[in-house]
Write a protein that binds this DNA or RNA. Sequence first.
DNA 1: TCAAAATAGATTGTGTACAATTCAATTACA
DNA 2: TGTAATTGAATTGTACACAATCTATTTTGA
Lengths: 143, 143
Amino acid sequence: MADKYQCLKLDNQLCFPLYAVSKEIVRKYKPFLDEVDLTYTQYIVMMVVWEEEQVSVKEMGKKLFLDSGTLTPVLKTLEKKGLIERTRSKEDERNLIVTLTPSGKALKDKAVKIPAQIGGCLNISPEDAVELHKILHKIMETL
Amino acid sequence: MADKYQCLKLDNQLCFPLYAVSKEIVRKYKPFLDEVDLTYTQYIVMMVVWEEEQVSVKEMGKKLFLDSGTLTPVLKTLEKKGLIERTRSKEDERNLIVTLTPSGKALKDKAVKIPAQIGGCLNISPEDAVELHKILHKIMETL
DNA sequence: TCAAAATAGATTGTGTACAATTCAATTACA
DNA sequence: TGTAATTGAATTGTACACAATCTATTTTGA
């Protein structure tokens, strides 16, 4: 009879490798992110602002799967660094609108090198990358 | 000419979906882990102790990709809950040995249901699960 | 053999994550 | 129209994660 605890082994779990790989890749980003003085979370927040130029905290939370409890302090830090501005919407004062400063816009040109640098570290085949992307997308939809 | 900032879009990144899916799955664990009064980190630590019965912090760190800065407080919490014991090795006092208590062993029988419960939430095909596992393993090796 | 190097954990400080609660602004509706 | 319900952020409290430093123990090598 097969060990009834087989399912409790780390190797047999799906979540643990995801958790571990995700953490290790984020760690790989560190030296490159240090160059632009951003943490990984700050980086993905900036990616949203670079794409949108104008976002509310709620919209950003939807894109990044983060809530205001996480975003508020990160956004305040980025504001202190002079990369973004936080202003209340005039139409609806409940909404906080995040916009890029010139300094934040300038950082985009430095950050544009990062994805290629990470790609160089990862050594993953294009087919695997596409397949992985597809599966992750599928999982995300069921959640 | 293609947008030179294309690579900075969230959708085109490999790390971000990994990070997001990993976080969302951990969140899916919560209600089931609440039943056994464990957080996700405490759960994977317990999984190591359930498999090994006897581990040092260093060995555990290698398996979980976590350092003592993370593990020390988690292990102290689990000790307070009465699930494990922390004792120094007699052969080498630098090593801290983690062992199961009867209560910790008993919890294994409750936890054994969790993987199936998560599986029921995920709705991922067996083929995709295998493929995902394979790719993640491959990435982990290059890191 | 004994001081220097190495090793294993613990500690400290910073930065997320997230649930739960609070608060202010807006909307709904009796 | 005025109060109740809703909404969007901020706040609070708990729990990681990790770099950097510190401490105690063990091992090495001149």
